[in-house]
Design a protein around this nucleic acid. Structure first.
Lengths: 140, 140
DNA sequence: ATCCGCGATGAGAATAAGTCTCATTTGCAG
DNA sequence: CTGCAAATGAGACTTATTCTCATCGCGGAT
């Protein structure tokens, strides 16, 4: 599944132009780590202007192609996302980010909303810890 | 319960000095909104140096007197906190932040950890929506 | 295929946000 | 009281992000 193609289609469907810089940035992001900062993208795509990187990052968030990951120190990174609502597991050892979803969590949050009288329309959940791979590694 | 006093005691217990700037910053934070940015504190306590504000903000996070709130646009604000682990409800209309805890959530997350093989040692959950107060208000 | 309008872009300046240095001050243990 | 390591402040510095505006080029209309 050529992710780029899917994304390009999403762009087009949103009524956004499919420009060379946007294509270049998409490609750059796919070559980057599983999460990256705005600066990483600026560096990885030197032919694209600084302002355009920030503009494009925001645009891609709006159309749901890129999402934010809040790291455990409170800094925010970006990440290509295949789509819908999800949460993140961030490995505190190797730094890898994994997506996950859970009906149970959504259910509990819904109950919480009902109970407290809030009308929740979005939420954000990040978990920090060691991934199975790192746990299996010989201790430091 | 004079929060300031409690906090000062916490500071002392941690082996940190109770200096005039720290006292001033605590007071400033209490006068601020229910959440505030570093810059807000800098402005609210002009007699305290910029660097000290950032240093103190970090210190207070370390000793658990201040916590971070991730707003829905991904920016991070700070907030005085009475203590332990909790999550946030952020009203998208009035901006107010409320703390909450839920055993159910912790349970579900623990199950998730067990199931996925992750060793979770921290997490962060923020919910965004309208608070009961704002919902009761006449529609715009 | 060609044209044209407006959305998109780039360069670089401007602003915002956070960190660092280091000489000086000051809690507070003894 | 005294000594000293922790804490501070001023302000330069670095890093992050936004803004401006002249120019460009995508893609719908023809």
């Amino acid at each position: 599944m050529p992710a780029t193609e899917i994304i390009e289609r999403t762009l087009a469907r949103g009524g956004y132009r499919l420009t060379a810089p946007r294509r270049a940035l998409l490609e750059a992001m796919q070559d980057l780590d599983d999460h990256f900062t705005a600066e990483d993208v600026v560096t990885a795509a030197p032919e694209v202007g600084r302002a355009t990187v920030f503009r494009t990052l925001r645009l891609m968030q709006d159309i749901g192609v890129v999402c934010q990951v809040v790291l455990d120190d409170g800094s925010v990174a970006y990440r290509l996302t295949s789509g819908g609502h999800h949460h993140h597991m961030v490995c505190s050892q190797c730094g890898a980010v994994a997506d996950f979803t859970s009906h149970d969590i959504e259910d509990v949050l819904q109950q919480l909303a009902d109970r407290t009288g809030y009308e929740i329309d979005a939420h954000r959940l990040e978990m920090y810890g060691r991934c199975p791979r790192c746990r299996a590694l010989p201790d430091e």
